[in-house]
């Protein structure tokens, strides 16, 4: 049975670090699939104007398309060129919650994320995705520094 690693991408440098670590692990494991996940932060409980609601579906499609084109597709192309087995997806919602959900659904062995360089105050105020994930995940989590 193939080992599955979930990698949280953010379209920036921390995501790259997480992916590098996943590649390293994948080589050590051998039969391994890397599942790339890009999450667009979204809450069903936010407040919007009627116009924003009317445009929401269009924006949803645009956001998914942009994230796929800019983050997931290039990463998948590189991984496949380097001989790795990989899949990718773009989701809307709470990052920590969704990473854990995907890991459970895919029966993954591990979630790999990287610590972002969020300032202490912002992290304290809003709570970091990594901290939330470590506290709530149902599978082992590796946080790359």
């Amino acid at each position: 049975m193939t080992t599955k690693l979930i990698v949280g991408l953010d379209g920036a440098e921390p995501g790259e670090r997480a992916l590098d670590h996943a590649k390293h692990l994948s080589k050590l494991i051998g039969d391994c699939t890397i599942e790339l996940v890009y999450i667009i932060e979204w809450s069903p409980y936010s407040f919007q104007t009627p116009e924003e609601n009317a445009m929401r579906h269009k924006r949803n499609e645009q956001e998914t398309k942009t994230a796929t084109e800019r983050v997931i597709s290039p990463a998948l192309a590189t991984l496949k060129a380097e001989g790795f087995k990989a899949n990718g997806r773009v989701l809307h919602g709470d990052a920590a919650e969704l990473l854990n959900k995907v890991a459970t659904k895919e029966k993954a062995q591990q979630i790999i994320v990287a610590r972002s360089k969020e300032s202490g105050f912002a992290a304290k105020l809003f709570g970091s995705v990594t901290a939330k994930l470590v506290m709530s995940a149902g599978v082992p989590v590796t946080v790359v520094n």
């Binding site: 936010s46 609601n53 989701l91 809307h92």
Partner: peptide, 13 residues
């Protein structure tokens, strides 16, 4: 359907 307008959002709007 995440990412679309939720029932809560429609009600709040």
């Amino acid at each position: 359907d995440a990412g679309e307008v939720s029932h809560f959002q429609a009600l709040a709007t």
